[in-house]
Amino acid sequence: MSKAWVLGLTGGIGSGKSAAAEAFARLGIDTIDADHAARWVVEPGRPALQQIVQRFGEAILLADGQLNRAVLREHIFAEPEQRQWLEALLHPLIRAEISQYLAAAQSPYAILVSPLLVESGQYKNVQRVLVVDVPSEVQVVRALQRDQVSEEQLRAIMQTQMKRDERLRYADDVLCNAADKATLEREVLRLHEYYLTLKGGQ
């Protein structure tokens, strides 16, 4: 069995990356979400969490010992140097977690889902890039419905992400997700059948 080639799946907040990834997973494709890997590396008992507590104090934890992401987010949005410190701590751990998972993938190709695929440079480690794209106004409506964040917080998150047209320049394939779920599923199936014909993603 040859090693799975890796498809990078990205898109702005609220574009439907997760829905697309789930549709690929239902077709038997191994997928790993960089955001999930980022959560695993700060689980209670993992060394990264201890270092975060040492830096920000016990107030950074919830009652059950889990990381309080909302409090952490406030710290890192307010002070850029705290964000740099956190990224320097977590990025190598997240990378290792992702590599390990992708190396063990059993499907013909595997998917790395990452909102910051391009911004973080992760796109250099994948063989092909699929951008899930929606108009910005759809993005805002969906993300506000789903994430229970203020519009201001949402705009701040969108600021850290690449502009839509810039992201599209990195795409080998674009999945337009402005319609309904059935349309998304059809598009995923069409791409999946195409991907199965590719050698090493090319």
Rank of each mutant, 00 (worst) to 15 (best):
S15E: 10
S15C: 12
S15T: 12
G16Q: 04
G16H: 02
G16F: 01
K17T: 08
K17N: 10
K17C: 11
K17L: 09
S18I: 01
S18E: 10
S18P: 10
S18D: 14
S18V: 09
A19K: 04
A19V: 13
A20V: 13
A20N: 05
A20W: 04
A20I: 05
A21D: 04
A21Y: 01
E22N: 07
E22F: 06
E22K: 15
A23V: 08
A23S: 14
F24Q: 03
F24H: 05
F24A: 02
F24N: 01
A25H: 03
A25G: 07
R26C: 09
R26N: 12
R26E: 15
R26D: 15
L27S: 10
L27F: 07
L27A: 11
L27E: 10
G28E: 09
G28F: 11
G28M: 08
I29Y: 07
I29E: 03
D30E: 11
D30W: 08
I32H: 03
I32F: 13
I32E: 00
D33S: 13
D33M: 09
D33N: 12
D33K: 14
A34V: 09
A34E: 00
A34Q: 08
D35H: 13
D35Y: 06
D35M: 06
H36V: 14
A37C: 12
A37Q: 08
A38Y: 04
A38T: 11
A38D: 05
A38N: 09
A38C: 12
A38V: 10
A38I: 05
A38P: 06
R39M: 11
R39K: 14
W40D: 14
V41Y: 03
V42M: 01
V42L: 00
V42S: 00
E43C: 03
E43H: 10
E43D: 13
E43V: 06
P44R: 14
G45P: 06
G45R: 08
G45N: 14
G45K: 11
R46N: 14
R46Q: 15
R46G: 05
R46K: 15
R46V: 05
R46W: 08
P47Y: 04
P47D: 07
P47F: 02
A48R: 02
L49D: 05
Q50K: 14
Q51C: 04
Q51H: 02
Q51S: 06
I52W: 03
V53E: 02
V53G: 02
